[in-house]
Design a protein around this nucleic acid. Sequence first.
DNA 1: ATGAAAGCGCTAACAG
DNA 2: CTGTTAGCGCTTTCAT
Lengths: 331, 331
Amino acid sequence: MPTVSDVAARAGVSTATVSRALNGKPTVDPDLAARVRQAADELGYQPNGPARNLRRQEAAVVALIISDVENPFFTAIARGVEDVAHEVGYSVVLCNSDESAEKERRYVDIAIQERVAGVILSPSGPASTVAKLAARGTAYVAVDRPLPGQDSDVVLVDTRLAAREATAHLIAQGYEQVGCITGPVGVRTADDRLAGYRDALKAARRRSTPKLVRRTEYKSAGAHRAALDLLSQAETPDALLIANSAMAVGVLQALQERGVRAGRDVGLVTFDDAPWAALVDPPLTVVAQPAYELGAVAARLLLARIADPTRPATTTTLAARLTERASSHRH
Amino acid sequence: MPTVSDVAARAGVSTATVSRALNGKPTVDPDLAARVRQAADELGYQPNGPARNLRRQEAAVVALIISDVENPFFTAIARGVEDVAHEVGYSVVLCNSDESAEKERRYVDIAIQERVAGVILSPSGPASTVAKLAARGTAYVAVDRPLPGQDSDVVLVDTRLAAREATAHLIAQGYEQVGCITGPVGVRTADDRLAGYRDALKAARRRSTPKLVRRTEYKSAGAHRAALDLLSQAETPDALLIANSAMAVGVLQALQERGVRAGRDVGLVTFDDAPWAALVDPPLTVVAQPAYELGAVAARLLLARIADPTRPATTTTLAARLTERASSHRH
DNA sequence: ATGAAAGCGCTAACAG
DNA sequence: CTGTTAGCGCTTTCAT
């Protein structure tokens, strides 16, 4: 593998000049610069990243730690982050924490060890995980979920309000027993969706009862069990608010198995406007979240913080939008 | 940020001993090792990755360059790669080439610059992109798509056979005019699916006509246009083979808009067993690809090649499985 | 504008 | 078993 010295020898200059030329420093004679670039090309020179980062004490890389690569909501965030980061010459490495605090901590450690310029994460674990980043002065931004007790930049969706509106919509459609299937206790978005659901019940002077609420992992299988469980009760819900699209899959399966007709016997609203949401029978009413935008904003905030670590922390809240389809319309 | 010297000073040993202790080398006194670990803990020491990699001339990282993060097929591959890599202490960085040869080349360059131990990629671009890896002696494995002219390790699905079987199934169900919507020319999986489709027509002594075939990007929007186009012809297909699940979304939308009933007016088989495939109306018959397994096998091959670069190249072909549902059953 | 030389933090010879 | 020391490849003073 050729090094700066090889390039320097071939171009007949010093390594310092090679470095300057290749990094586009203005203080180098154009002719020399051209000679250097040609020599580098001929040798197929590729700079040694670790050496460069060691010297510079920082890499033009941001780490994006998301809680589930298989969830389209998070991959959309990833796209937003990538597009913004690439614009300014940063690379993005995607890490999948899989909703595990342990893996999240591991990836945070790796990010620190690799001396990345910054980290964007949707926290699965306790705030203590990111405290390491703060302690080391590595810039970071939380996305989708806040970090209790940390005054970091955060980009959120107003998910509580969205849940409230979605529930209010079900109530307005005449459903009597609106239930809710949401994510695990302690995951902020799951808590907020439940809180919004309760807000709406309260506003409509309905009693909220634990019998109509189920909490489980943010996945299809958990929601499937939860739905079967809800349906096997004496008092079954006639509508459901579902906290994400993976869960919606599990719920729809459960309804099918039990011969319950979605949209007729049970009204449905689910978070996330999956590409297939309009194609199932009946088409799903959804709360569309601005996932791409979330990622893009987070990336811009991170870059700003990298540039100026003393910037005051900000909280950005984006709105979600209810898209009505047949699954929430009573027949 | 504390360094080995700081730890060494605190533990009262040399930096070499610190390095040895922290890397679990057996040649260090257990007592000393314990003292070193404690000192490291107390200081919150995190090794400097770039420095380590510079010295070691290699990082325990593999890059996974996939052509579309938003495609569940590829994220499933990613899961397979991650699980295997993590078992042996490697980290995985995910790069999204977005079906762009340009981005792919860029990520390959970055992988080389960062001196990753190996690269797994689903090639979007020409074989010349990976030639760089070969030239530098970086281990790599192609997944899902072969690299023409490169004798590298490859992990594939027997997609041509799967397409043939899927098409034969449609013919056996009594459909007369089976069409095909597949990916771009030059993308190997897209070519193979078309070839398998033609194989089946030939075997059934049907004439294959360009009028029933459309090629477009592997996305919903392209397939949507393609389907509308097919439906607006004089001779419309009464069945379709669709090359992936994103495309299926576009096709189903098109059918809805035209008031064509899927499964009744037009039989459907699509590649990829998306979680929602059984939930649409009618449930989709699919060709389920072993995506996770694909990733896991690719990772194992890569690790083997990293360990022994002289290993002969292998080609692994996994089978896909037709899952019959109502969308391909004539009423 | 260019070169010489130091040094980022770590690991691996080599000595002891 | 432990310490001393060199050097990975790069960028960046400092000097010219």
